[in-house]
Simulated assay, not measured.
Amino acid sequence: MTAAAAPARTLADLGPVAQLRAGRLGRRLPQLVVGLVLYGVSLALMVRGNVGLAPWDVLHSGLIEHLPITLGQAVVLMSFVVLLLWIPLKEQPGIGTIANALLVGLSADATLWLIDEPHALAARVAFMLGGVLLCGIASGLYIGAQLGRGPRDGLMTGLHRRTGRSLRLVRTLLEVAVVLVGLTLGGVLGAGTVVYALAIGPLTQLFLPWCLVDIEIPERSVPS
């Protein structure tokens, strides 16, 4: 017989169709959008703080030194480049994956248009710290919506599955690699990069339980 769907208070590894069938879309879709928009805002705050960017944003800031595009457009461009790397890793994108690739960059550009870099060092540090904190909240929101991993997160989990290496090691190696490439291109590295690297994991872990949406996961059919 087929068992009824079981409520799950945990992160589920679902394909795109199962994500949509898991229920509570009226809560999950707005939460996803809010999380991704806030993620873009957090990126822009760190840019305006000008005391160091998150590792991937070091790469994005390096790209715009050589291409006639904005920072947000660089985020979108690299998101789709990274998604091409999902193909050999056989990762499954979801609504959240595509939304992540588009909304974060658009939100970052809109925020950069609205706010200027403050002159006082204390204000710039506050922008950076606020950006890191907001990024932790935003990560909890969009991950907790359970509508698919972002492009960069999927690259990390895909490499983890394929290589058998720990997520911590894979993430560290990826972020070191993108920082080195970003620096080669002229990207921005600073104290904020270190603060982000040390704080984003604990912050996401802190906020995720508050943001994680219960979803219904249909159990596999079993013989009666």
Rank of each mutant, 00 (worst) to 15 (best):
T2Q: 08
P7F: 06
A8W: 09
A8R: 15
R9W: 15
R9S: 15
R9H: 15
L11C: 08
L14E: 07
G15H: 11
P16W: 15
V17L: 15
V17Q: 09
V17N: 03
L20F: 14
R21E: 12
G23L: 09
R24P: 14
R27P: 05
R28P: 03
P30N: 09
P30L: 07
Q31M: 06
S42K: 01
S42H: 03
A44T: 11
A44Y: 05
N50Q: 04
N50F: 02
V51F: 07
L53E: 11
L53D: 11
A54M: 07
P55Y: 07
P55M: 07
H60I: 04
G62H: 03
I64L: 13
I64Q: 11
I69D: 01
T70P: 12
T70H: 07
L71Y: 14
L71M: 14
L71A: 11
A74W: 03
V76E: 07
L77K: 01
V81C: 09
V81T: 12
V81P: 06
W86K: 05
P88W: 07
K90N: 11
E91V: 08
Q92F: 10
I95S: 08
N100R: 05
A101Y: 02
L102A: 03
L103P: 00
V104T: 10
D109V: 03
T111H: 06
L112T: 01
L114C: 07
D116I: 02
D116S: 11
P118D: 01
L121V: 00
A122D: 04
M128G: 02
L129A: 01
L129V: 03
L133N: 02
C135E: 08
G136K: 03
I137S: 02
I137L: 08
G140I: 07
G148C: 08
G148M: 07
R149G: 09
P151K: 08
G154R: 12
T157S: 11
G158M: 11
H160Q: 15
T163I: 10
S166Y: 14
L167N: 03
R168L: 05
L169V: 01
E175L: 05
V176L: 15
V176H: 12
V178W: 10
V179F: 10
G182P: 08
G182W: 15
G182S: 11
G182Q: 12
L185M: 10
G187N: 00
A191H: 09
G192V: 13
T193R: 06
T193N: 07
T193S: 09
A197V: 11
A199Q: 14
P202Q: 14
T204C: 02
Q205H: 14
P209Q: 10
E216R: 12
I217S: 00
P218C: 01
P218I: 01
E219V: 08
R220M: 04
R220W: 00
S221R: 12
P223W: 00
P223N: 00
